[in-house]
Nucleic acid binder design. Structure first.
Lengths: 241, 241
DNA sequence: CGCGGGCTTGACTCACTTCAAGTTGTGTGG
DNA sequence: CCACACAACTTGAAGTGAGTCAAGCCCGCG
């Protein structure tokens, strides 16, 4: 019974036993969601945050006419709901992309961490701003890059994130998103995602086998879209002792 | 000698005198930058964060071929550099858009706040995630909206932010960005920004007089681009006492 | 008076969208 | 084991929103 949350956070700092006790409290309960169901909907009052135990999920926002933007994709060990701390109502819809298991905990458990564990607070704070930097990178990609650069960026980003918790991953992973979802993430239509993926294949950048994606020339892809790795290490030097 | 930082933060919670003392320490020093100069450049090692005392600034990132994305615009009272807390090196370039006065303070002053002022920590945390929500909104606009919607979104966003500290602002403000900078913010070319602004004027949404922007029908603009106000109030109910 | 940066405008181009008609794969029921 | 339903993907043709290029304008400034 190892916790993916503790696994993910230990990647960055050594956790004291007090810290671990506080974190375990966040994973006391759990709940299953099947693929395609919504955990909460935009505008809904949310009192709980979640830790992802298994599965992939994503947050998205709709426009009134049905256009959609996926803004964040989540993997096991991620803490969900930090952005909603600032507001009573959910600022986006959270959907399970695959069957998923989540651990809900009340927002109010956060204040206990703030009061009792400054070092852990600093880490959560840092992860929140790290996510902000990642969003900034996505904004740059969406605002200024071509279709092939954007799709490449997304694949590189997902691979980099999966590597943090799974050292065995080398150059391929299973991508449980269909082409409409990929398009909604990078700001393209499903049709053009299909054409772009075909092109990336015929140019020798990637290979696709059903849902398995393999990056055949990661360095060239990184060069093509000026990808920046943001997950491997963060600055913990200023943290309180 | 009133502090815009304290003014901005008091908008959300009552600050204790201890809190104010900690905050005043952040504004002890100050430094002037003239319009167009860079405070720091992407990749540079940054040990300091800043409070904006006066002027407008923005953060941007370049692509290798010269394309550029502006990712955040700053006003007096803003705390700059939170995203860089996670990394040793600046993740974007910070440029003064007008002549500006900044108060630099070392990153390490933050840990003192984390240890001694949990309530203030919670507020800074909340502001960081509020900024994340704003970035998410911008990502949605950039990824899924048309030129006129994006430009409208930017104008509404700037107006909403200026209103937080300046109650007198009603429907107009001075915009110290040229059309290339507006384009780099919303992902358009300077030429198309010009055409879009002309169109918004002839459709009666806005009027422009040199750098003065007036929103003639704010409700219709909000409706057009499904704008969400994120600055007026945040959830402070869960904060430690 | 001339210079230069920022803005405007029009003609042309193109990356991506839209629409529509297949194809493929997969689960389901008879 | 086949039939068929359905969602996901593919492919091509046509359309369009925004980009590119280029010329001209406006205006503050040396």
């Amino acid at each position: 019974m190892s916790s993916c949350l503790i696994a993910k956070l230990s990647h960055y700092i050594d956790l004291s036993s007090d810290d671990c006790r506080l974190l375990e409290r966040l994973e006391k309960n759990e709940r299953e969601y099947s693929a395609g169901t919504d955990v909460h909907t935009i505008g809904m009052e949310v009192s709980h945050m979640h830790v992802v135990k298994s599965g992939w999920l994503y947050n998205y926002l709709d426009l009134p006419d049905g256009r959609r933007q996926i803004v964040r994709i989540h993997h096991p060990g991620d803490v969900l709901g930090l952005p909603d701390i600032a507001y009573n109502d959910a600022s986006s819809t959270l959907r399970a992309s695959t069957d998923a298991c989540l651990c809900p905990f009340p927002k109010s458990h956060m204040d206990e961490i703030f009061v009792n564990a400054p070092r852990l607070t600093a880490l959560l704070f840092t992860i929140a701003v790290r996510d902000q930097v990642v969003l900034i990178d996505m904004l740059r990609a969406t605002g200024r890059m071509s279709a092939r650069e954007r799709v490449s960026y997304l694949l590189l980003d997902l691979l980099a994130r999966l590597r943090v918790t799974n050292k065995e991953i080398t150059d391929s992973f299973k991508l449980p998103l269909n082409q409409s979802e990929i398009g909604d993430t990078v700001g393209l239509t499903n049709v053009y995602v299909s054409k772009t993926l075909k092109q990336l294949q015929s140019d020798g950048y990637i290979s696709l086998d059903n849902t398995q994606v393999r990056l055949l020339n990661e360095d060239a892809m990184i060069e093509m879209c000026d990808f920046a790795e943001r997950y491997a290490s963060i600055d913990t030097s200023w943290f309180p002792a």
